[in-house]
Design a protein around this nucleic acid. Structure first.
Length: 261
DNA sequence: ATGACCTAACTTTTAGGA
């Protein structure tokens, strides 16, 4: 079972790229972030024509997450618990059931950016991460294959950025952000890419500005976190870097994990 | 040289992103 995540930076602008990725990589599940459209504007038709079921949690203009799956979706949850007025569409979760066996719970996550520091946006990011941690703890108690995939907006370690000094003042690389990410991992989750490859210089995002892609000034912020029952089945991961070279690309590229079922 | 982008919106400028 191939599970992928991709921040597409507007599904309407990136529909052709999304369809091409579905046709070429043939993921069983694709988690999308930054749809930037309300539910009713989500282009479900062409995606369904490729054999995918769709669960969408959209929002006008910003945010928005979705799960595409070749297999039936059930138990769809939209939004993290304890919203307390938080109306950002940043979390959707569903159970994927492969015909003939193999069930996994998958979440598509668009974690808040948190910039600039010193504003409520950074506090919102940290509070959201704590809500995610509590929810993940509850999901782990189910002791089932679980994949928390998405744009975490966290650079976990210095080896995940071309030049750490450039990011010291950024919410993505703050000690508090990295600590909250480690607390999530410490629940017993396995970060899929790092379980397969410990090299420096693995990136999933290159800014549109300043020729970041051409100069390979990237950062690694898109992650798949696996429960023990999913990690036991992890075969390989891939960063689909080639999509960043496509015409009018997203600034993020897909990341995928193959599980043995 | 320290510049350079992209997207959505009650659009002609601003907010948000990272």
């Amino acid at each position: 079972m191939l599970i992928a995540t991709w921040n597409v930076n507007s599904i309407k602008q990136r529909l052709d790229h999304c369809l091409r990725f579905l046709k070429e990589a043939k993921p069983d599940v694709l988690c999308l972030q930054e749809l930037k459209c309300p539910d009713e504007a989500f282009p479900a038709g062409p995606i369904e024509d490729l054999g995918y079921n769709v669960a969408v949690h959209g929002q006008k203009a910003f945010n928005g997450v979705a799960i595409l799956s070749r297999h039936p979706l059930s138990d769809v949850r939209m939004g993290l618990p304890e919203a307390n007025g938080d109306d950002h569409s940043r979390y959707i979760e569903a159970v994927i059931s492969r015909p003939g066996g193999g069930v996994a719970r998958v979440a598509s996550i668009y974690l808040p950016n948190g910039n600039p520091l010193g504003t409520s946006k950074f506090g919102y990011k940290l509070a959201w991460m704590e809500r995610l941690r509590v929810h993940a703890e509850n999901l782990l108690a189910l002791e089932e294959p679980l994949v928390l995939a998405g744009d975490y907006n966290v650079i976990p370690e210095p080896r995940d950025v071309y030049d750490p000094a450039d990011w010291l003042g950024d919410a993505l690389f703050q000690p508090e952000s990295r600590g909250a990410f480690r607390r999530l991992i410490a629940l017993g989750l396995t970060e899929a890419v790092r379980a397969c490859d410990d090299r420096a210089g693995l990136y999933t995002f290159w800014d549109y500005q300043a020729g970041a892609w051409q100069r390979n000034r990237g950062i690694r912020i898109d992650h798949l976190l696996l429960s023990p029952q999913a990690a036991d089945r992890l075969v390989e991961t891939r960063i689909h870097k080639e999509t960043r070279g496509w015409e009018k690309p997203s600034d993020h590229v897909p990341v995928s994990a193959r599980l043995a079922f």
